[in-house]
Each structure stands twice: as structure tokens, then as C-alpha cells.
């Protein structure tokens, strides 16, 4: 009997070790230098077009007017004056670092949250059209509007963001209908005014993953309207960026004054894996927060670090065997 127990325990131990080993994530970070002078390298928006070109937007600052560039793996980074005619470009919005904005899926409209927390829609050659004020205020803060920093989109092209006390709003860019949903971003009692949407990504099954100002991750099913609080992967506040690839959510979080750390959420196992600080291949630590992150059609993560010497980066993740 003792022998059977010993053998069974041994097999279980080996099996659990193997499954643990399978879970160790491999992480490769490459830095891509941006050919712009210091203070003119703070890329806040990245997007990929149908032809596979990656476009980036650098907002205006004291040191420079706004910049648009495209990034081609073979030809490098090139600055351009304007996006194509098929993309609506409103310079006062896309070059303003204090405004949260996104395109609709057709790139014919820009949906923005202005400084006072009002949803505004811009179309080609038209003035902004105010739709609805969604933001609440944050107590004890001078300019305390509770403004989300991200939009999420579902597979139909509807957009989602959070407003007062973390309540989710659904925006139909075609009809400009805005619906206040029942779902609300997670927050501990008293922190609801800080339950803003910092980052979001959509899974291949249509589930949307949301990251909050206080560092919570939640999943949201747009079909059922169900929001599930998945918890806080890091001790720090803030989720800087989220992307979905290879069936997992890859995220980077941490306060601007803290240090960026990465994590992976696996919806199958409902587990977080913590990756620690961001290091490049030379094992040098990345000190500046991440502005934005996307997954290319080729399955590569491209993102940008902020700051005076901000640069682009690529990340490859996978499981180490």
C-alpha cells in the first residue's frame, strides 16, 4: 500500500512539475530607435492598415508640432504629412496628448472624449459633434474629471469606454447612439471615481479585456453584458497597455512613477503569470511607461515607450518548453 502511495505521489509530482514548466513564459524585447530628436519621440498611437504598414502618431508638445510616421520592417521609419484620403484626420484631436480618441472601424469617424469628459464625434471636414457627457469627477483632484484613456471595440465595430464611477458606455459609431450599460469597472469601495478605463483589448472569441486606473483586469462579454473582475495582477496601480494574442492577454502595468511590469492572463486556466520588469535582450531595464501597444497581422507586438527618448519596441512572447 505504501509503495502504491509513493509511486502515485511521485507521478503526480512529476506531472505537476511538467505543467508548471510549460507555463514559464518566454519574453524577447527589441528596441527600435526612432529617427527623431529628443522630446519628439513620444508615440501615443499605433495602428496597422490593410497593406501591413504600421502608422504612428506623436502628439504636439512644447518641442514639436504633431508628427505622423509609418514603419516598414524593410524601409524603416518615415515621417509623412498626412494620412491617406480614406482616413479622417483631425489634427486638433490626434495631436492632442490630453484627449482620448479612436477611429471607428472604417476610419471615417473619430470618436473622442474631450477634457471635460464629453463624447465628441468628428467626421471629415465637419466640426466636432458633442454626444453625451459621460465623465464624473474625482474628489481631491484639481482637474478631477474621471476620464478614461481607452476605447474597446467588439467584433461588430461598437465601441466601449467607461464614465462616471466606472460605468460602461456602448457607442454605435454608425448611428451615434450611446447606451449606458449595467456593467461597471471593478473598484474597492470609495475608489469608484478612479475606476477609469486605461487599456483594453478584444479576444478572438469576442470577449473584451479591460484594464483600470487602479490596476484591475476585467473581462466583459458584449453579447451578455457580463463583466467579471479578474483581479489585480500587480501591486501597483495603472494598466498601461493590453493586447490579445495566441489565446492569452498580454499586459503591461505600473504607475508612471513606478516601474513597468508585464503579465499574461490565460482565459483557459484563469491564471495570471507575472513576468517582472521589462528588459531588453541585453538585460537592460526599461524605465519609462508604455504609451500604446498593438498586435500586427503577423502576430508581433509593437509598442512605444514614453518620455524624452521614447522609442518603439517589439515583443515576442511564447511558452518555454
Amino acid at each position: 500500500m505504501k509503495k502504491v502511495f509513493f509511486i502515485t505521489s511521485f507521478i503526480l509530482l512529476i506531472a505537476s512539475s511538467l505543467s508548471f514548466c510549460e507555463g514559464i513564459m518566454k519574453f524577447d524585447l527589441d528596441i527600435i530607435n526612432i529617427p527623431f530628436p529628443p522630446y519628439q519621440r513620444n508615440v501615443t498611437k499605433l495602428f496597422e492598415t490593410q497593406n501591413g504598414l504600421i502608422y504612428g502618431i506623436i502628439p504636439s508638445s512644447q518641442s514639436c508640432s504633431g508628427k505622423i510616421f509609418y514603419f516598414d520592417r524593410n524601409a524603416g521609419i518615415h515621417q509623412i504629412q498626412r494620412l491617406g484620403d480614406d482616413v479622417v484626420q483631425v489634427d486638433s484631436i490626434i495631436f492632442n496628448p490630453d484627449i482620448t480618441w479612436t477611429w471607428d472601424k472604417t476610419f471615417k469617424k473619430i470618436i473622442a472624449i474631450d477634457a471635460s469628459g464629453t463624447l465628441v464625434v468628428y467626421e471629415k471636414n465637419g466640426p466636432g459633434k458633442e454626444i453625451l457627457k459621460i465623465a464624473g469627477t474625482r474628489p481631491f483632484e484639481n482637474q478631477g474629471f474621471q476620464i478614461s484613456r481607452a476605447f474597446a471595440s467588439d467584433t461588430h465595430g461598437n465601441l466601449y469606454t467607461a464614465g462616471k464611477n466606472g460605468i460602461l458606455f456602448k457607442i454605435n459609431p454608425e448611428t451615434l447612439e450611446v447606451r449606458k450599460l449595467e456593467a461597471r469597472l471593478p473598484a474597492i469601495k470609495g475608489r469608484e471615481p478612479w475606476a477609469s478605463l486605461d487599456a483594453a483589448t478584444t479576444g478572438s472569441d469576442g470577449i473584451i479585456y479591460l484594464g483600470t486606473f487602479d490596476g484591475y483586469i476585467a473581462s466583459f462579454n458584449p453579447e451578455t453584458g457580463t463583466l467579471v473582475n479578474l483581479g489585480k495582477p500587480l501591486r501597483q496601480q495603472r494598466i498601461q497597455a493590453l493586447v490579445f494574442l495566441n489565446g492569452v492577454v498580454f499586459g503591461i502595468g505600473g504607475e508612471p512613477d513606478g516601474l513597468a511590469r508585464w503579465f499574461v492572463y490565460d482565459p483557459l486556466t484563469r491564471n495570471f503569470q507575472l513576468g517582472g520588469t521589462l528588459k531588453n535582450k541585453e538585460n537592460r531595464l526599461i524605465y519609462e511607461p508604455v504609451n500604446t501597444m498593438i498586435v500586427t497581422k503577423e502576430g508581433e507586438i509593437i509598442g512605444s515607450f514614453s518620455g524624452r527618448l521614447g522609442c518603439l519596441f517589439t515583443i515576442k512572447i511564447g511558452k518555454e518548453k
Binding site: E255, G258, T277, L285
Partner: peptide
């Protein structure tokens, strides 16, 4: 700890 910097957030 130059690589993990636990004093930031951890």
C-alpha cells in the same frame, strides 16, 4: 537589485 527593482511597486 538592478534587474528586478522590487522597491518599485513590489
Amino acid at each position: 537589485n538592478f534587474i528586478d527593482r522590487p522597491e518599485f511597486g513590489e
